[in-house]
């Protein structure tokens, strides 16, 4: 059960994050030597955006302390489900070049289905495999786009 208090912390995090982003942009822009000789250089807009970010962040922080919260009367969230989806995506971007598209996409499919409460692992894996395999065929042979077949496969079966 997430309460209004947690949501306030969330909003404070959002405000803090935007504040940090604003400062980061300002500092990075300051550190970049300017090369342009036009009237308005490439630095002005980043400064404007940084300024806007800082102002909005301060107003969000004020709202986090005293303003209305997003969901009146609490809000329930399933943290494990979020972790399954987020974890599935991490596994995919870590493995896609090594294992290839088909296994990594299948894994993602199973992870997301699990997040939504489906425990039929074998069936989900089969469906994911069909979807990943189908898209691989369509994209690589039909549309000339390159989905990785995986460096593991290329070790065993190098194409010329």
């Amino acid at each position: 059960m997430t309460t209004g208090r947690t949501l306030r912390v969330g909003e404070a995090l959002l405000g803090g994050g935007l504040l940090a982003l604003g400062i980061l942009i300002a500092v990075e822009t300051m550190l970049t030597p300017s090369t342009g000789r036009s009237v308005v250089g490439p630095a002005l807009f980043p400064y404007l955006v940084a300024g806007g970010l800082v102002l909005v962040a301060l107003s969000l922080l004020r709202e986090a302390v005293a303003g209305p919260v997003a969901h009146q009367g609490g809000f329930e969230m399933d943290g494990a489900a979020v972790a399954f989806v987020a974890g599935g995506l991490v596994a995919q971007f870590l493995l896609i070049e090594f294992l290839g598209w088909i296994p990594s996409a299948t894994l993602l499919f199973v992870a997301v289905a699990r997040a939504f409460g489906s425990r039929r692992l074998a069936l989900n894996a089969l469906l994911g495999l069909a979807l990943a395999g189908g898209t691989f065929l369509v994209f690589n042979y039909g549309l000339d786009l390159n989905l990785p077949s995986g460096s593991v496969v290329e070790w065993f079966a190098p194409d010329e």
Partner: peptide, 24 residues
């Protein structure tokens, strides 16, 4: 079923993002 629907949406989403520039 929702598990399959959202799993499919995410598979297609990563597919779209990856094929833009073919990089991780």
């Amino acid at each position: 079923p929702r598990p399959w629907l959202y799993a499919g949406i995410l598979v297609f989403s990563t597919l779209g993002a990856y094929t833009l520039n073919n990089n991780v």
